[in-house]
Simulated scan of single mutants.
Amino acid sequence: MLRVLIADDQDLFRAGFGLILDAQPDIEVVGEAADGEEAIAEARRLQPDVVLMDVRMPGKNGIEATREICATTAAKVLVLTMFDLDEYVYDAVRAGASGFLLKDIRRDELAHAVRTVASGEALLAPAATRRLLEDLVRRPAHGVAPRLAARLEALTDRERETLKLVARGLSNAEIAAALVVTEHTVKTHVSRMLSKLDLRDRVQAVVLAYESGLVVAGESDNEDRTCD
């Protein structure tokens, strides 16, 4: 049973999300919070698997709460907002969020999103993904920063190649086809890559790949690949 904490300053949204999720056979809403401070306290007390986090809340906002929850608990944070703005997408991901969705999603999409981030995968609304990548692309790449270079050096050639393809937005099946390996092998490469880089999920891997300069806007996938 997946345990979920809902953090939103609007009673209507908390009640609505709660009804949708409690109706699922494998999901249980274990608590609610009306602001960032309460969300942090409840996440530490309840130890949920997933926290649904609003962005705009009184006092400590959702981004700040996400940062503390990700740093002090094992909970995955799924950010929900009505505001599809660049700074929220980027800041949420940098704070450690595993997902970013708009509040107008369908009820079946909400349950799927909770299951997805709970399983360790990352999930971003298509518009949010596009905005995140556009923002990263606009940031100038001046080569790999020293602290990032040291982390990337821990990767094997194949793990580095896998990271590049993950950053391009390819699924495990697409990466398997590109590298001519099985999906199981890709999953192993992704898992080891995330572990070596001390990353929570694929979203953070995308951010690191662009920020480090490992992936540069305009490069083709063929340019990234190496021959076996």
Rank of each mutant, 00 (worst) to 15 (best):
R168T: 05
A118Y: 03
V89Q: 02
A34P: 00
A167L: 11
G96H: 07
I63E: 05
A65Y: 14
A122N: 04
R94N: 13
A15T: 13
A15H: 01
T116C: 07
R151D: 05
L21S: 02
G99L: 05
V144K: 03
P146C: 11
G96I: 02
R200L: 12
G16P: 10
A113R: 08
D224S: 12
V117R: 02
A113C: 05
D11R: 14
L123C: 08
P25H: 04
V4Q: 01
G218V: 06
G143S: 01
T72Q: 14
A173G: 08
A209Y: 00
T72S: 15
M82Q: 13
E28C: 01
P58F: 02
L163Q: 10
L194Q: 08
V114Y: 07
L21W: 13
D228G: 09
G16I: 10
I175V: 15
R107D: 15
D157N: 14
R202G: 00
V30R: 08
I175K: 00
V186L: 09
S171G: 00
A15R: 06
E159G: 03
C227Y: 15
L179H: 07
E38D: 11
E174R: 12
A92C: 07
F83C: 03
L163F: 10
L132D: 12
V166W: 10
V77I: 05
R151Q: 14
V93H: 06
V190Q: 13
A118W: 03
T162A: 06
T66I: 07
T185F: 04
S119K: 06
L19C: 07
M1Y: 02
V4I: 04
A154V: 14
E38L: 02
N222K: 14
D224K: 09
E109A: 12
R107H: 13
D135Q: 15
I63H: 05
D35Y: 01
D108V: 09
T156N: 08
R115I: 12
K187N: 15
D198T: 12
V89T: 07
A15G: 07
Q204C: 04
R225W: 11
E134R: 13
T188L: 07
R131S: 09
A113K: 06
P126W: 00
F83E: 07
I69Q: 05
L165S: 01
P126R: 03
K60C: 07
L179Q: 12
A122I: 04
L101S: 11
I105Y: 00
I69S: 01
A34G: 02
A217P: 06
G96R: 01
V4W: 00
E42R: 12
R107Y: 10
L199I: 14
L52V: 03
D54A: 03
V89F: 02
M193F: 10
T66D: 10
A167Y: 14
H189G: 02
T72L: 02
L102M: 13
S220R: 04
H142C: 09
K103I: 01
L208V: 08
V180E: 12
L5P: 09
A176C: 10
V186N: 09
V207M: 04
A150V: 14
